[in-house]
Simulated scan of single mutants.
Amino acid sequence: MHAHVVVLGAGYAGLPAARLIAERSGARTTLVNASALFVERVRLHQVAAGQRIRQRTLAELLAGSGVESVVDRATAIDTGRHEVALAGGGRLGYDVLVCALGSVSVVDTVPGAAEHARPLAGAEDSALLRGELAEASSVAVVGGGLTGIEAAAELAESRPGLAVRLLTAGELGAALSERGRRHLRRVFGRLGVDIREHAPVAEVRADGAVLRSGEHVPADVVVWAAGFRAPDLARDAGIAVDGRGRILVDEALRSVSHPDVYAVGDAAAARCRDGRELRMACATGLPSARQVARAVGDRLAGREPGPLRFRYVNQCISLGRHDALVQYVRRDDTPVELVLTGRIAALYKETIVRGALAAQRRPALLRLTPGGPSRRRGART
């Protein structure tokens, strides 16, 4: 009898992982997702800004793969019984479980954020935000990371009459090079985005945000982009996780506490052999999908899988539809001074986004992504 592999989550990592596992191992593979639609998470700021993005169904992207799709929400994992409980009342047994549930916004650390701020981590979030912004004259984006930067730029470009403020607890673009930060400030100046640095938010109210200094920043809508964590499903199941709820995995993406559980993408606290931790990003989700498919296939065939091999190349940041910033980085993700900006960078970013979507239907394209797994034991990273 073939092993049954259950994959939870059909995002940038989960969907190609399911396809590749079915293709390479021949195992019966079931993909569980709460929605019948594939969410292009890297375009959610465009949706929030009112742009129409073509939606694709899981059935469309899984056609011909042999993967069984279950549209339901996983509510619990019983690691003793090797079962996943579903919101619809059913239970799925598994021999191997792959967690690919992505990440959610952290809204419980600041009073009022859960009640009054709109996160930007899922399709429902962006749709609600789009509706609220249609009636708004001002918006405060909280968070100076890539999500906050992209959201602020997109909103300012799409809605020229909207007053956009970006609030960040630190320096804007702190992870970028000096040239990258200069370009970011030029674009925000052109778009009219009001930047408030070193301005941690202490409270969110219906009429805006209150800074730790006591200053009130008025806003009709507050967009929350101040951090992400993994869902609580793995932690609640007793699987070893880190402080952000990500499953602690070895170099083959296998849980360190439960050998029949793997994790990919934002759900995994993954490191390369030199100790570098991989950040939450589509750029790491896609290569990790390829790695977990090979690792699961090898283990089911009685082979020892090789470690994850990965290196960063760049960070691609959209700044509206007509500008972008491609920040080139060293293999450990630290920036160099080389950047690509303007329309050519926007075209580059759009090509990357379209390629990530194409890889969902044709996961062989993942071979073109930076890094990847090695079948050689002891391979250098």
Results as ranks from 00 to 15, higher is better:
Ala117Met: 12
Asp220Leu: 07
Glu171Arg: 15
Glu171Thr: 15
Pro218Gly: 07
Arg118Thr: 06
Cys282Ser: 07
Glu203Gln: 15
Ile77Lys: 06
Arg367Gln: 08
Thr75Asn: 03
Gly90Cys: 08
Gln360Leu: 11
Pro111Asn: 10
Gly50Val: 14
Ser25Met: 08
Ser374Gly: 07
Arg273His: 00
Leu233Tyr: 02
Leu162Asp: 07
Glu337Lys: 09
Ala134Cys: 04
Arg377Phe: 03
Ala153Leu: 05
Glu178Cys: 09
Ala359Asn: 09
Ala206Arg: 15
Ala226Ile: 14
Gln327Arg: 13
Arg376Ile: 10
Gly297Pro: 04
Leu97Asp: 02
Ala152Pro: 03
Arg299Val: 12
Ala175Met: 12
Ala156Val: 07
Asp125Phe: 15
Ala293Glu: 03
Val210Met: 08
Ala175Cys: 02
Ala219Trp: 12
Arg205Val: 13
Ala346Asp: 07
Arg331Lys: 14
Asp266Pro: 01
Arg159Lys: 04
Leu338Ser: 08
Ala175Ser: 14
Gly342His: 09
Ala140Ile: 12
Arg309Met: 04
Arg91His: 11
Pro119Gly: 08
Ala237Trp: 13
Gly26Leu: 03
Ser255Lys: 02
Pro287Leu: 09
Gly131Arg: 14
Val142Glu: 08
Met1Trp: 02
Arg130Met: 03
Gly143Trp: 12
Ala134Thr: 11
Gly214Lys: 10
Leu58Pro: 01
Ile77Ser: 01
Ala267Ile: 00
Pro218Trp: 08
Thr147Val: 15
Leu191Ile: 05
Ile317Arg: 00
Gly143Asp: 09
Ile53Tyr: 02
Leu15Ala: 06
Val221Thr: 15
His116Pro: 03
Val67His: 07
Asp72Val: 12
Gly372Trp: 06
Glu350Val: 01
Pro119Tyr: 11
Arg290Thr: 06
Ile239Val: 14
Val104Gly: 03
Ala114Gln: 14
Gly90Ser: 09
Ser126Trp: 14
Ala134Ser: 13
Asp242Lys: 03
Leu365Trp: 01
Gly372Phe: 02
Gly88Lys: 14
Ala379Trp: 11
Val241Leu: 02
Gly302Phe: 11
Ala283Pro: 00
Ser65Ile: 09
Leu162Val: 15
Leu176Ala: 02
Val223Asp: 04
Arg54Tyr: 07
Arg376Val: 08
Val5Met: 01
Ile317Val: 15
Val7Cys: 03
His258Ala: 12
Thr168Pro: 05
Asp207Gln: 06
Gln55Met: 06
Ala76His: 12
Ala267Met: 03
Arg73Asn: 04
Ala136Asn: 08
Asp298Pro: 05
